[in-house]
Design a protein around this nucleic acid. Structure first.
Lengths: 195, 195
DNA sequence: TGAATTCAAGTGAGCGCTCAGTCGATACTC
DNA sequence: GAGTATCGACTGAGCGCTCACTTGAATTCA
């Protein structure tokens, strides 16, 4: 692996675990084996490392979702929604460090002053919201999901799932043990009354 | 107002908006009109200011909830749940800066090494979770809420409501416009099928 | 050989916190 | 009541240190 890739990989881990400001360039240097000068040769400054990480993350998320949508075929919209939630939880586990990054304030504070950062964050979130929304719309066509505003409900469902992932990382409650209840709650919230 | 109170008030605002580490004692000094030495006369160090803020917050939250529970009397458990969500959103608005503090990582990182901090966080969250759980249990007695694990459902509902508040502060989506949908989603999730 | 990459040793701005000391109010002494 | 002592509240210059970033030489590569 090139020095540049090593820097990105280690920085991702450090930014996630300790936060952007609390990550020291000296530590990044020590853990990668690259001298501090080398880091600044590849990246103009610390913030550019952060942006590079976010850009890679966006690319990976978009790719994962395209692949997921391409290879699945759901019977009903309700089933598609359950699949989407499972997929989100799967990604949050497979890309644990980068999801942790999304739960820190660093990215959102940068997004306030940096349009590129803001755009990348919106792309990432829209991947999730779009697939939730599509599931609801499909479900309303096939009758498995009751009439309700699709986008708004997608946002509510997403904040529910994402909130649980966040609680899990805070170690206050064992939110990981709530998977079954989560799916059940979602089903009760969406399904048409008589079915 | 005493200098000490002024320090606490301004520190709450700064810690919420900028984060603990990113808040400078020099800025706190300038905004309060107290010399830096004065701050360290009243508080042993920066961390102690943070803990004092959290302790006040805990006290206020507990008081608010005791008062809320004492003066309300709900017809059904489902109505009580809707009231509890409204109350949470009301508090999140009335104590905006301190709720923002809860959405930063500072407190949770401190909680990992400081038992007092952890205890205060748990007390705060249990206030919310307890009232959600009580509403569910009441609703299951009076028939307005379907059978489901009360505590687990309370946690899911809380992460949904709290997740929306968090999205709002991030300025990515206008989650504030979702109040009606939130209540509707909650009602569909909880109510007994035939009612 | 010259361009790209890597390196270690800085540099200086900024930070949390200390400390010697000021100030004004209160209590005590004669 | 004048003088003295004590105290809590407050001050701000400055110390020791950290840390993002620079520099210029060394090394590697094409």
């Amino acid at each position: 692996m090139s020095k540049k890739d090593a820097i990105l990989q280690v920085a991702t881990k450090l930014f996630s675990e300790k936060g952007f400001k609390e990550t020291r360039m000296s530590e990044l240097s020590k853990m990668t084996g690259a001298a501090e000068g080398t880091i600044f040769y590849h990246f103009k400054n610390k913030e550019e490392i952060f942006l590079a990480i976010l850009e890679h993350f966006k690319g990976d998320i978009v790719k994962e979702f395209q692949q997921y949508i391409a290879e699945r075929n759901f019977g009903t919209g309700l089933e598609m929604m359950e699949g989407a939630i499972s997929f989100y939880l799967h990604l949050a586990s497979a890309m644990e460090d980068r999801f942790l990054l999304l739960h820190r304030h660093d990215a959102y504070e940068l997004a306030r002053v940096n349009p590129v950062c803001r755009e990348q964050l919106e792309t990432i979130y829209n991947c999730f919201l779009d697939i939730f929304e599509q599931a609801i719309l499909l479900g309303q066509q096939d009758g498995s999901i009751a009439p309700m505003p699709a986008r708004k409900t997608a946002l509510i469902l997403f904040s529910m799932v994402d909130g649980l992932v966040r609680f899990n990382t805070y170690d206050l409650y064992d939110a990981g043990a709530l998977y079954n209840e989560l799916i059940e709650a979602c089903r009760r919230m969406l399904k048409t009354p008589q079915s």
